[in-house]
């Protein structure tokens, strides 16, 4: 369980995250939605201690993240940010192997390689696992990075706009994989996402942010609601039920 209590973050006198409190249950997908500049990425970066919070408390399974050892935390929670500009001469397999660093400190044992192989298989990268990163398409590279996070084998996985630069087919493929991770392996996933229809179709909970504040949080069916969306995005969004899924029509 991730517990966030009264968290603040300021940049140049502007409150980017303003008194946010959420609890996230285990074994769910929680999507963070909201307009640009709402503080979604900042919040998710703070949960994963990439940036420090100004005030408040974040605990994971009861442990304060600032007081937990870096290495221990890296076995519990992993994050993938949207900018993945690695410019090393690395193959997919080598990249994924880096995910085992918290366990192996660089010297991979057999069980580490088993995890690496599993992650590669899970993301269907087996055939291209020896290709270099700079030879890959955007979608393949994104999948390679997710495979690295999988190899890290953490209970909690944080993803910052994982669908960026992906076409529809790959987007759906990745969201299905994430769903599978939660349903089959019991992972807990937090993701920042722009497309509210993806959020609506694949997540269990949605947290809606605007100007650093939480506007609404709850089960997906409660948040995907005409009034709520109007509050978030300042536009009228019609919602239709198609095959039991709520689809937002905002064009």
């Amino acid at each position: 369980m991730v517990d966030i209590k009264n968290v603040f973050k300021m940049y140049n006198q502007k409150k980017v995250v303003d008194d946010v409190s959420i609890s996230i249950e285990k074994g769910t997908i929680t999507s963070f939605i909201g307009p640009n500049g709402a503080g979604k990425s900042t919040l998710i970066s703070m949960i994963s201690r990439l940036i420090a919070k100004d005030d408040g408390e974040i605990t994971i399974d009861g442990q304060d993240i600032m007081k937990t050892k870096n290495n221990e935390l890296a076995k519990k929670i992993s994050i993938l940010k949207q900018s993945n500009s690695i410019n090393l001469k690395l193959t997919i397999r080598e990249l994924v192997a880096f995910g085992r660093f918290p366990y192996s400190q660089g010297k991979l044992r057999n069980e580490d390689w088993v995890k690496v192989d599993e992650a590669i298989r899970y993301m269907e990268l087996g055939e291209i696992q020896d290709k270099y990163l700079d030879e890959l398409s955007g979608g393949q590279r994104q999948r390679a990075h997710i495979a690295m996070v999988l190899a890290q084998d953490t209970e909690y996985i944080l993803l910052d706009e994982p669908l960026n630069n992906l076409d529809m087919r790959h987007s759906v493929q990745i969201m299905k994989t994430l769903r599978k991770l939660v349903d089959e392996l019991g992972k807990t996933i937090l993701l920042v996402i722009h497309d509210i229809n993806f959020a609506s179709c694949y997540s269990d909970h949605i947290v809606a942010l605007k100007d650093g504040k939480i506007i609404k949080q709850g089960r997906t069916c409660d948040v995907i609601d005409q009034c709520v969306l109007k509050d978030i995005y300042d536009m009228d969004i019609e919602i239709q039920n198609i095959d039991d899924r709520k689809i937002c029509v905002y064009f």
Binding site: N71, K75, S78, I86, F98
Partner: peptide
């Protein structure tokens, strides 16, 4: 080796 991946990856992998 891990730090060469960049700060965010390194922190994520538990490097202080």
């Amino acid at each position: 080796d891990v730090m060469a991946l960049g700060k965010e990856h390194a922190v994520n992998l538990g490097v202080p």
